[in-house]
Design a protein around this nucleic acid. Sequence first.
DNA 1: CAAAGTTATAGCATCGACGCTATGGCCTGG
DNA 2: CCAGGCCATAGCGTCGATGCTATAACTTTG
Lengths: 99, 99
Amino acid sequence: MSDRVDWNDLRDRRLAEPGAAEAYEATRIAYELGQEVRHLRERSGWSQSQLARAAGMTQSAVARFEAGGTIPTLPVLERLAGALDMRLDVRFTPNADAA
Amino acid sequence: MSDRVDWNDLRDRRLAEPGAAEAYEATRIAYELGQEVRHLRERSGWSQSQLARAAGMTQSAVARFEAGGTIPTLPVLERLAGALDMRLDVRFTPNADAA
DNA sequence: CAAAGTTATAGCATCGACGCTATGGCCTGG
DNA sequence: CCAGGCCATAGCGTCGATGCTATAACTTTG
């Protein structure tokens, strides 16, 4: 799982950076969103290319995103959501353990 | 409301762009998040400078964001959430009206 | 084995978000 | 009137996310 990889390394490296508790979170969110999109896509029986076209992006961008290779931007998330017939929901929720 | 403005114009212009249903959404989300942060901040009795420092950014960045001047990135949203003692929640939710 | 479909990466260009610094306009309190 | 705090903007530089194109590796099929 760490042979021909690249973004995984990149991501892990990012997660290892010190003093980046929040950046860490962003990376994790990016990773989870990627996983979710992958699941949704596969559930629809679509290929990355199909989803890409539906979302107005390229296959490589989809692959990059699903692999957690980058921290996606809201516009991209919106387009993916639209293509997958979902709604993007971004909000601040009260923190359980008040710091 | 349209006198010495600038980002408002910018934003409105963005919202007026054709064929950008999703980009439109992103802009709207950005605007709403800005409003929310402003409310949370004021509720805490903080100035933009204070929030900025707590979130590791500058007062100008906070102002820009609150005004909806830019579509924020996840890292920034994370930092703001952390500073405001909130949690950022990004997710795909099933679309009510299946396209 | 050859052909075609699918995913993972690479390399390069562009664009926009963010950081930083500085300033103008406002308001309020000496 | 002056000083100080607060918010809105401007300009500029940098960096990272995307877009695009091309290709490698794998799998499945004929």
